[in-house]
């Protein structure tokens, strides 16, 4: 009980200190601004699809042809969140890295740790307090982002969000939180382990670029269908089924491409979130239970990274002569 109180005291201090930090506030405002832009752009993209449909419909009517075969664009409000999820992937993770770095660097630099550990608090309790406090901050950030999204999409945009969709938003919120805590733990692990604080920040940012941007990009550019702007198979008049049959002959190439993509935490988060929110067409309007079963693998990957980085940071904080 006493230990729990100590953990909560440290967590409370971390929570309130973060809201006074300029770096954190700068990134939070930047992230919220980008989310608004991305949702607005998503809605404009949908409007342009509707406009294209209406133009094609009118042309068919004018030329006396039946417009029945024309596919009407359907509005799925959660598909507007694609840009928001991608910005959470990119900027959200930098925000988590900043939190992870600042939470350790501050006390390591101003030598406050000597004073703290002269009090009856163990290293593990102290670090757990930091982890708990910063996890709550990240949960607040993610909740604010999703609340913002909900307000924009439903109240301002006027889209009706069903209970099932609300549940999907909640699942996506939890996954986003897990994703951000992974980057928090990675950054604090490096700040604990490395002697030089600037080096730990630069290495964290370099890893961020590799994990979040480079590795998923390699997989994407290796995709055969991405070799031509309009799609390679479309350019050579091959249907989706025929393309799948052909690609079966290149299973080793496809496996390599998939393995490269799977090396990135971001890709697991993206695959899961895109499935839950129906951004990937094959998961659109599917029940949540079906998506969770189908994407169980991605959840396991995310939870494994979550556990590994958190356990490693706790162990290294406890073992390292951090004072």
């Amino acid at each position: 009980m006493n230990n729990m109180f100590k953990v909560l005291t440290v967590a409370k201090k971390e929570f309130f200190a973060a809201w006074k930090n300029k770096v954190f506030i700068t990134f939070l405002l930047f992230l919220l601004g980008l989310i608004i832009i991305s949702i607005y752009i998503g809605s404009l993209n949908f409007q342009s699809k509707v406009f294209e449909y209406q133009t094609a419909y009118q042309q068919l009517i004018d030329s006396g042809l039946s417009p029945d075969k024309l596919l009407k664009p359907t509005f799925f409000p959660l598909q507007l969140l694609r840009g928001a999820i991608e910005y959470l992937e990119i900027i959200g993770s930098v925000l988590a890295i900043a939190l992870g770095y600042l939470s350790i660097a501050k006390e390591k630099n101003n030598k406050a740790l000597q004073l703290i550990f002269s009090r009856p608090i163990s290293k593990v309790n102290f670090y757990l307090g930091k982890l708990f406090g910063n996890s709550i901050i990240l949960l607040c950030v993610v909740s604010a982002v999703f609340f913002f999204i909900y307000i924009i999409v439903s109240l301002i945009g006027g889209a009706a969000i069903t209970n099932q969709e609300l549940l999907k938003i909640f699942v996506s919120l939890l996954t986003s939180w897990i994703y951000l805590v992974i980057f928090y733990a990675l950054s604090s692990l490096l700040t604990i382990t490395l002697k030089s604080l600037p080096n730990s920040l630069i290495i964290s940012l370099s890893l961020w670029i590799i994990i979040v941007l480079i590795v998923p990009q390699i997989g994407d550019t290796m995709d055969i269908d991405n070799q031509v702007p309009s799609g390679f198979f479309n350019a050579i008049n091959v249907t989706k089924n025929q393309a799948d049959d052909i690609l079966l002959q290149f299973s080793s190439y496809e496996t390599t491409r998939n393995t490269i993509e799977e090396a990135s935490i971001t890709k697991h988060y993206e695959r899961f979130s895109f499935a839950v929110l129906g951004i990937k067409d094959e998961y659109n309007n599917k029940p949540l239970s079906f998506i969770l079963t189908d994407k169980f693998n991605e959840i396991i990957w995310l939870l494994s990274y979550f556990l590994i980085f958190n356990i490693l940071s706790i162990i290294s904080f406890n073992k390292k002569k951090i004072i």
């Binding site: 991305s38 404009l44 409007q47 991608e86």
Partner: peptide, 20 residues
Amino acid sequence: GQTPTALLNPITMDQQLSPG
């Protein structure tokens, strides 16, 4: 009008998605 990750594909990054 491209999403951030689509901007990292050298083949499609300059495509204009929306004419609005």
